[in-house]
Simulated scan of single mutants.
Amino acid sequence: MLNGRDPRIDFFRGLALIFIFWDHVPHNPLGQITLRNFGFSDAAEVFVFLAGYASVLAYSKVLQREGYWMACLKILRRAWVLYVVHIFLLAMLMGIVFFANSKVETRDLVQEMGLTHFITNPQQALTDELLLRFKPNLMDPLPLYIVLLLGLPLVLPVLVRKPLAVVAVSLVVYLLAPRLGWNLAAIADGVWYFNPVTWQFLFVLGGAAAIHAGQPRAPQTRALHQQPVFLAAATYTLLAGVITLSWRWPQIHDAVMPAVLSELLYPISKTDLSPVRLLHFLALAYVTAKLLPGRGWTHNWLAQQSCRMGRYSLEVFCLGVLLAPLADMLNAQVNDAWPMQIFSALLGLVLMAGLAAWLEFNKRLNQTPRRDGHPLNS
Rank of each mutant, 00 (worst) to 15 (best):
D42H: 02
E45H: 14
S55Y: 02
V56E: 10
V48G: 11
A43N: 10
N37G: 05
R36H: 13
I33C: 00
A51G: 15
F38W: 09
Y53C: 02
F38S: 00
P29Q: 06
A54I: 10
H24W: 09
S60A: 15
H27E: 14
L35N: 05
F49G: 06
G39F: 05
F47V: 08
I33L: 03
F49P: 07
T34A: 07
E45V: 02
F40S: 07
Q32G: 12
R36M: 10
N37R: 13
P29L: 06
L35A: 14
A58V: 09
H24D: 14
A44R: 11
H27W: 11
Q32V: 05
L50C: 05
Y53G: 01
L57M: 12
A43V: 05
G52I: 10
L35M: 15
D42E: 09
G31K: 02
P26G: 10
Q32E: 15
F49N: 06
F49L: 13
Q32L: 14
P26D: 11
F38D: 00
F40A: 12
S60T: 09
V25Q: 04
A51I: 10
D23T: 13
L57Y: 04
L50N: 02
H24C: 12
N28L: 15
F49R: 08
V25W: 03
S55L: 12
A54M: 13
H27M: 12
G52R: 09
I33G: 00
P26V: 10
F49Q: 06
H24M: 13
Q32W: 08
P26I: 11
V46C: 07
G31M: 05
G52M: 08
V46R: 00
R36S: 15
G31D: 05
K61P: 00
V48H: 11
T34N: 05
H24Y: 08
L35H: 12
A54G: 15
V56H: 08
N28F: 01
A51V: 07
H24V: 10
S55K: 04
S55M: 13
K61M: 02
S60M: 03
A58R: 15
F38T: 00
A43S: 15
V56T: 13
S55G: 08
S41D: 12
A58F: 14
R36G: 15
